[in-house]
C-alpha cells in the first residue's frame, strides 16, 4: 500500500509539472498585455514596464525563473495589485471557495445518495417517479437561476436569510443550496442507476434466499455495493464544484477565488492566472489520488496491497 501511494504521488508530481508547463506556454499565447492602457504608452514606457515585470527576457528564461521561484514557494506578485504576492491572495480566498464547495458537496451528496437509494428501491413506483422528475428539473435549471429564485423568495420576500455575504452560518444556506441541488440531482441519478443494477444481481437473491429481511438485504448487501462507484464521481465533482462556483460567488458576493480568477484572465495578470490554475490542478490531482486510495479501501477486489488473487 505504501509503495503504491508513493508511486501515485510520483505520477501526481509529473502531472502537475506538465500542467504548469502547459499553462505557462498557453498563457504566453494570450492576446494583449497585462498593462491597462498599453496602446497609450510609448514604446519606451512599455519596455520599462516589461523590464520591471521581467517580461523582456526570453521565454525559456522566464519559464525557468518561474519554476525556480515556485520551488521556493514564491508564485510571483499580482500585476494588478502592485506585485502583492499571489500566494497571499490564494491563501486568503481559496479557503472560502473550499468551504462553499465542501458544504455544497456534503449537502448534495448526502441527500443525493438517500434519494437515489429510495428511487432505486421503489423503481417504477410513485416515489421513484417523483425523484426522477425532481432530479431532471434540478439538473436542467442552471444554478444561478436557482440562486436568484432562492434569493427572491427567502431573502427578499420572507427575509429569512441574508441576500449576500459570507460570514454567519445563515449566509451559507442559500449559496450552499444553490450549488448543492445540482450535486444532489447528479448523485441521485447515479445512485439510482447503481442501486437498480445491484438489486438485479444474483447475490441479492442469495441474500434473500438466506431468509434475511428486506431491510437487511438492502442495507447490508445492496447499499454498500451501490455506493462504491459513487466514490469515483464524488472526487472529481468536488473539484469541479470548488473550481466552478464562480457564478454563485458572484451572485452572493462571496469573496472566493472564482471572481479573482475571472479578473486575472480579463486583465492578463499572468502570475495570478498561473497561481490559480496551479491550485485548481493540484486540487484535482490530489482529489483523484484520494479517490483511488479510498476505492481500494472500500472495494476489496481492488485492494492494492500486493495484487494477489487466486
Amino acid at each position: 500500500m505504501g509503495r503504491y501511494i508513493l508511486k501515485r504521488v510520483g505520477y501526481m508530481l509529473v502531472t502537475f509539472y506538465v500542467v504548469i508547463t502547459l499553462t505557462f506556454l498557453s498563457m504566453k499565447m494570450l492576446p494583449g498585455t497585462p498593462f491597462k492602457f498599453a496602446n497609450r504608452l510609448t514604446p519606451e514606457q512599455l519596455n520599462q514596464l516589461k523590464h520591471y515585470y521581467g517580461l523582456d527576457q526570453p521565454i525559456p528564461v522566464q519559464y525557468l525563473h518561474y519554476l525556480w521561484n515556485m520551488l521556493h514557494g514564491d508564485l510571483g506578485g499580482s500585476f494588478q495589485y502592485g506585485m502583492q504576492p499571489v500566494t497571499e491572495f490564494l491563501l486568503q480566498r481559496f479557503p472560502i471557495s473550499m468551504e462553499l464547495g465542501i458544504e455544497s458537496m456534503i449537502f448534495g451528496t448526502v441527500l443525493g445518495i438517500v434519494l437515489g437509494i429510495i428511487s432505486g428501491i421503489y423503481r417504477g413506483k410513485f416515489l421513484d417517479w417523483g425523484t426522477v422528475t425532481l432530479t431532471v428539473l434540478f439538473i436542467s435549471i442552471p444554478s444561478f437561476i436557482f440562486a436568484a429564485i432562492l434569493q427572491y423568495f427567502f431573502s427578499v420576500k420572507i427575509q429569512l436569510f441574508p441576500v449576500i455575504g459570507w460570514d454567519s452560518p445563515m449566509t451559507h444556506v442559500l449559496p450552499v443550496i444553490s450549488i448543492g441541488v445540482g450535486v444532489m440531482a447528479s448523485i441521485a441519478r447515479f445512485m439510482r442507476t447503481e442501486m437498480v443494477e445491484v438489486l438485479n444481481q444474483d447475490y441479492i437473491v442469495t441474500a434473500q434466499a438466506k431468509g434475511l429481511s428486506t431491510v437487511a438485504v438492502i442495507y447490508k448487501h445492496a447499499i454498500r455495493n451501490a455506493m462504491i462507484p459513487i466514490v469515483t464521481v464524488i472526487g472529481p465533482m468536488t473539484a469541479a464544484v470548488v473550481t466552478g462556483s464562480l457564478v454563485i460567488e458572484n451572485i452572493f458576493a462571496i469573496p472566493g477565488i472564482g471572481s479573482q480568477f475571472i479578473d486575472a484572465i480579463v486583465t492578463n495578470d499572468y502570475p495570478m492566472i498561473m497561481g490559480t490554475t496551479e491550485l485548481y490542478a493540484a486540487l484535482f490531482i490530489v482529489t483523484i489520488l484520494i479517490v483511488d486510495i479510498l476505492y481500494g479501501v472500500i472495494d476489496p477486489r481492488i485492494r492494492v496491497s500486493g495484487g494477489k488473487s487466486s
Partner: peptide, 18 residues
C-alpha cells in the same frame, strides 16, 4: 435458509463481492 435453501447456477455472481 432455515428449512429450505437454495444454491445457484453461477458461483461467480452468487456471492457478494464486498
Amino acid at each position: 435458509g432455515k428449512e429450505i435453501s437454495m444454491i445457484f447456477q453461477d458461483p461467480m455472481t452468487a456471492l457478494n463481492p464486498t
